[in-house]
Design a protein around this nucleic acid. Structure first.
Lengths: 147, 147
DNA sequence: GTGCTTGCAAACGTTTTGCAGACTC
DNA sequence: GAGTCTGCAAAACGTTTGCAAGCAC
């Protein structure tokens, strides 16, 4: 699966900080801590989860700062967000993004390997001229247990 | 593509009203008008669109009544809702539901034919035991014009 | 009359915004 | 010092809920 438009490969917190400074941004400690959390943590973190983790290291970082920095990091292509259901969006490093299957009955979340979309990607491109990126919204359905 | 769990085939407003009464519900005029709107209108109507259309015929119907009735109609399997982007959900008759491809750049919405998902559906079932219903969340990507 | 349904207002959860002060460069 | 970034409060957005009055049966 192709990366999202604008995805950037960055391996460390300092890489991203350098990128932000190169664009005229400042290297603030909220940003560094937010990035540390994103690099260390697992997937499927929503803004609230991230805020809690950041606040363990710096209690006064406000959730609006989290949102503003998440937005900026998306503009830079460092992270992406996805919608796994009706709740809050989840954020992850762009390089780790993947699609999800979610069971409508039990909520089970399966991280879908990219190969599974190869056929659909080819058909959508040849029949509709459309290049899919199946990672933004989850695909609902019924899991093995529930069916 | 299989229908959503609980989908019901109903051809007319009166069919649905009869169904609701059979379950102990009342045949109110807000409900009839809401159903008329759903049967007459095109796809991709959000709650606000529906409320406006209903209010042309009965100005005092409140949007909370619209939401309550939409929810009940979903419980009965008469309609489904889908998420085409970051805005409000859209509602349609379950029998007309279909998947969507949406361009991340220009917003173009393609109504995806069900056959296009056959391969993915088979792979997901055999590899993951998961039966997909690709109609709830749109699939993002880049359209022919934008790429 | 029973009890489902409605309108209204108020709350909800998530996200965005305006502003004045604080910080980075 | 210029301009970015922050915390806070408040608003925005789509949706849900509590309640008392209204309506279908």
């Amino acid at each position: 699966m192709p990366k999202d438009i604008g995805d950037v490969d960055v391996a460390t917190v300092e890489d991203v900080v350098a990128l932000m400074r190169a664009r005229g941004g400042r290297a603030t400690s909220s940003r560094r801590i937010l990035l540390e959390v994103l690099f260390e943590a697992g997937n499927h973190l929503d803004a609230e989860d991230i805020a809690e983790a950041v606040q363990l290291r710096s209690p006064d970082v406000h959730i609006s700062t989290i949102y503003r920095n998440l937005e900026e990091l998306q503009r830079l292509g460092v992270i992406v967000h996805s919608h796994l259901g009706h709740g809050p969006a989840t954020y992850q490093l762009a390089s780790l993004a993947h699609a999800h299957f979610i069971c409508e009955r039990c909520g089970l979340t399966i991280e879908a390997p990219d190969e599974i979309f190869k056929g659909l990607a080819r058909t959508a491109r040849t029949k509709l001229g459309f290049s899919i990126d199946p990672r933004h919204f989850a695909i609902l359905g019924i899991c093995a247990q529930c069916s």
